[in-house]
Design a protein around this nucleic acid. Sequence first.
DNA 1: GCCGTTTTCGGCCCGACTGTTTTCAGTCG
Length: 599
Amino acid sequence: MVFLASGAFVFWIFLAMLPGMTREAAAQILERIALLLELKGENPFKIRAYKTGAEVVESYPGDIMQLAAEQKLSGIKGIGDALRDKLYEMATTGKLEFFDNLRAEFPETLFELFEVQGLGPKKIAALYAELGVGSIADLKRACESGEAAKLSGFGGKTVVKILESLAFRDEHASEFRVDQVYGLALAILEALRAHPAVSRAEVCGSFRRGKETVHDLDFLCATKKPEEVIADFVGLPMFEKVIAQGGTKASVYAANGVQCDLRAVSSKEFPFALNYFTGSKEHNVVMRQRALDQGWSLNEYAFTPVEGKAGPVIPAVHDEADIYRALGMDYIEPELRENAGEFDAAEQGHLPHLILLENLRGVFHNHTTASDGMASLLEMADAAQELGMQYLGIADHSKSSFQANGLSEERLRAQIAEIRELNEKFEGHFRIFAGTEVDILKDGSLDFSDELLSELDYCVASVHNVFNLPEAEMTRRIIRAMENPHVTMLGHVTGRLLLQRPAYAVNIPAIIDAAAETGTIIELNASAWRLDMDWRWWRLAKEKGVKCSINPDAHSTRGLEDVLYGVRAARKGWLTKKDVINCLPLGEVEKALMKGKIR
DNA sequence: GCCGTTTTCGGCCCGACTGTTTTCAGTCG
């Protein structure tokens, strides 16, 4: 086994041999227990305890599974005796008998029903008990046959809503959010690069282009021993099933259902293959046409002279930049390759210097235990400093967001005081900005008074309810909020949850115009679920002079790291560090928070 | 099931909206 020479591979083998369980798997089991208990009509507080437990496991800053295995979980809020024992069992045996017994009562496919908008535990329980609906396929059949509409509590409109939700799901079948594949992609890449017979390796496709969702992962490697590399690739422990395996390419399914493809080429072919498999298709079409204009044909392996058309001598190509140079252009970053103006800019030398993760100096819009976050103010501040940030903006929910334990006026004032006090201790080398994520109410008014808002360093305004307004009304509602001089930023503009809930109806160009007029910053919510405002709008915003804030919307210390997804989206939206206010250092960012406002 | 604690059990997160009802249950945030 060639891979044995590689530290990364040994590491993966080691992981695969441990009897324990990853934190993600353990958190998922706790979540599923909560769902099944809901179906069984259990005590709602017990259910919540399992949900909270899942969140704690998911977001605990530290190796919680290791702690569980060593029986050192006492004192962690949300983990009591029962969950402690269950986590110990999972960490040491890799399974949980309680869960196995519980799930044996229901079909495995039942869980997918919870992903359907409009279906909750009660309706799912009724569908299962009355009609034996245990999967999405069953559900579709029951809705289309009219059976579902006859159930008590169901009706025509309910069924229409369910069918609409199913159609949305179908449209996005086999797509994955970037956070669902990110760690996997890096681990596979690391393993490939560590292979002694591999000289170069890269992830291609929509992942490399920074898309918000992907439907597979495409890997490319340069090697002189393709068959050997392919054989070792399909044997990696994170793969569950080999779909196809040949001399130069292979396709496999990873454990979470993502298809991963590997193609092996020679080092000479590598830049061409990298360019070709990165795409997009639309970008490639233009690339090939441009090559033809030079008298060359371009494919995934090389430039070749077109017969009968004496073009200039084909230059040597060592990397992708050489290909662009040969075609008379600057190097185009993968994120920009959508045939959306990048060729003109590359020809004229006008490509933007895209923002980098290391350009960020701080993070706005984060939650603490005061509302629905998992970490305290101090823990969040510590974590931000660990990430090299100079400042941290807190923006807990406002009082109307009951579900998120939104702060009352009194509690917010107390938090402001607490922040001021902490800042004294930082002595200027770090600062917490006191803010709020204030709800935009149905009529566009805000959930806190102007007087209270004026006491804050900044304010994010977001829509959290009444999503079904007509577009014009929703747009007016949001613009009214932006017109409030205390509103510094607009949070998650469309409320979309990728692959789960479509955006509500809102006129984005009108919002961008209003942002420009009122000096309101628009958030790029970096949560992989949202990535909202969408990258497709940022060039317009930038043209209008609207600034961006890449906001992790962190609900835990780990959540702060989501800024990396936001940076990917910002790069895809042509943004540079000059366009993003949280690239400004402490001492300058304060001015950006005031610009156009009366703070 | 967790938490807090005057250690033994009571309280735990509330309101709007929708659709099916005819006074309310379920879902969502």
